[in-house]
Amino acid sequence: MVCLAVKAGSPVTFPEWKALFTELMPGLEVQDWYAPSFDPARVDYAFVWQPEAGRLAQMGKLKAILSVAAGVDHILADPLLPKGIPIVRMGGDETETQMADYVRWAVFSLLREAPRWHVAQARASWARKDMPPTRLSTNSCVGIMGLGHLGTHVAQTLLAAGFKVCGWARHDKQQEGIVCYAGPDGLLPFLQHSDIVVCLLPETPETKGMVTYSLLSHIRKPAGFINVGRGAVVVQADLARALQDGTLHGAVLDVFETEPLPADSPLWAMSGVLLTPHVASEASRPARARYVVATLAALERGEPVDRLYDPAQGY
């Protein structure tokens, strides 16, 4: 019998997870990470969010670790993480659709000046004459930083919505209908071609702190920025500076260096900014359970799986 350990939320959510996994994969043994009866020696697979340091190392039969989220930094933070165990990132159609919907909303919000309308509403101000003219989607190029699974899906969705789309990746990528740039030499042309930049980069040693004031200054004016990747990719003080001095006209931000965003952050009070609490892509429990079960079945058959973490790439 295959055994799955689950740490995918608070202890009160475990019965729902167990019911979902039992229905989708009869015969699967599902262990509650928090239960006093938890037996690490029985675990074949772990489905986790922020596992306590050393806990995974206690599981001598562990075949793979499945992340509750698209990122795996919460797993890699474990200094005692067992070596050589495959790590699988969360994916699936619902994850991709939610991200694409969020980014589309964010792009249109910047084009239609939604952050400033929001501030006017809070003041009960009919600020019609104070707003810049609306920009058209057909005249705007959205640049996607990061052309992995999510970035590619977002790019294709924006393309279908009528936007011009370009993309940048650390390595060469080719996408139909999208102007693709790659590597250090391609970064400046990518930024200069983009009116709004969407950051979907993973956090790696190469990308951490990559988005600086200098980088933001090269986005075509009036520049917009959307971060749905990782907070650590952006130097937050530089982002605030770019918004304060007009280098950036507006931003929609879902991820931050510190979460929750501290109450004293200047970003809260900026009129050109919309903030959301890391919710851009949060697939439902049934969707995530389906993805996990499909991944377990493939692993048990010895088949390759999607979204396998590659230590050499850093994502």
Rank of each mutant, 00 (worst) to 15 (best):
V2W: 05
C3N: 07
G9E: 09
P15W: 05
W17I: 00
W17L: 03
L20M: 06
E29R: 14
V30Y: 01
Y34E: 04
P36N: 08
P40E: 06
P51I: 00
A53V: 04
R55F: 06
R55I: 08
A57W: 07
Q58D: 11
G60T: 10
A64P: 00
V68L: 15
V72Q: 06
D73Y: 10
H74G: 03
I75W: 01
L76S: 02
I85E: 05
I85T: 13
V88N: 03
M90V: 08
T95I: 15
E96D: 15
M99T: 05
Y102R: 07
S109C: 05
P115I: 01
A124V: 14
D130V: 14
D130S: 14
S137V: 14
V154Q: 00
Q156P: 04
Q156E: 15
L159N: 04
F163T: 02
A169T: 09
K173T: 10
I178F: 12
V179T: 15
A182K: 12
L188Y: 13
P189T: 11
Q192P: 12
H193P: 04
D195T: 06
V198Y: 03
P205E: 04
V211H: 02
T212K: 06
L216D: 02
L216A: 03
I219R: 09
K221L: 13
N227I: 07
V228T: 09
G229N: 12
G231N: 04
A232D: 01
A232P: 01
V233W: 00
F256K: 06
P260Y: 07
P260D: 08
P266I: 03
L267Q: 02
L275K: 11
P277G: 07
P286E: 05
A289P: 02
R290D: 12
V292E: 00
V293M: 05
P311E: 03
